[in-house]
Design a protein around this nucleic acid. Structure first.
Ligand code: FES
Ligand code: FES
Lengths: 134, 134
DNA sequence: ATTAAATGCTATAAGCAGATATCATATATG
DNA sequence: CATATATGATATCTGCTTATAGCATTTAAT
């Protein structure tokens, strides 16, 4: 009932980078700050770079910076690169085909809350996170 | 961002059993109805039995029946035997210790929705599920 | 130039949830 | 009693997520 490690780490990294954009964001530095295992952190940064959220600067005193405006990166976008939101569309009781030949008995209750979550993830950008942190 | 298979299967099994309590609930029968892999289903039924939700009748024409009133089994109780609800208390951005030395910037937004979920899980019993299925 | 410090790339290991397999034991039915 | 059918218990396999390791390449500083 939560995100995968990879997703959580991605969210931690990008929100930290968004809030402290002045600092030099090397993998080593982020490792010190966020305590994410270094080689794993490296992989995730590469992934975030491939997905166009950040760009890398190689060589000494290199690191990562955002490659597009923070307003244009929603939490849902970040989750989409790893877990995706599809699991939130699944039945909370775990039915694939409903054995009752209809929506399961938790459906209506779950639907509202589930939509709230998706709404939050879609409507919250990294810029919003920065604002709230101030 | 959803329950583990074990939890989902547990929820499927117990809600199916609650709704169709008249039928003979052997592992084989439940397997036919719910399409949960048979040996895995067996393990989960044993687990649910150990946790006191259901009791078993061994031997030919044996199977499983509830061992306490369906009013006294909440979804949260079932989840507690597997995943537990602790993950819902975790930071949605994945921070263990908040690197900002305070609650993370998603905290307040997430809190309400998270409480809704916990409330639903705690306040919905198998009896409620039966009622809604009618 | 040389070196130090960074990312790029990719192969591999470790750990866990999901799934399977097997034998022992119990019991209803004939 | 013999048999078929059920659960009890437990060991093992598998695949995915998490994590590690190592070498190549780039770049800044000296
Ligand atoms: S069918 Fe189960 S939550 Fe929708
Ligand atoms: S501290 Fe991050 S959601 Fe509460």
């Amino acid at each position: 009932m939560n995100f995968s490690k990879t997703t959580s780490y991605s969210l931690s990294i990008l929100s930290y980078m968004a809030i402290n954009e002045d600092e030099n964001m090397s993998a080593k530095y982020l490792h010190d700050k966020l305590s994410i295992p270094y080689p794993y952190l490296r992989q995730i940064l590469t992934n975030l770079s491939h997905h166009g959220f950040i760009k890398s600067q190689r060589g000494r005193s290199g690191g990562f910076t955002f490659s597009k405006p923070k307003e244009q990166i929603s939490i849902a976008d970040i989750v989409a690169t790893t877990d995706g939101l599809r699991s939130l569309s699944n039945c909370i009781l775990g039915f694939k085909k409903c054995p009752f030949n209809k929506q399961c008995s938790m459906h209506s209750v779950w639907e509202k809350t589930r939509n709230d979550i998706v709404k939050i993830l879609n409507e919250t950008s990294l810029a919003d996170i920065v604002k709230r942190a101030e």
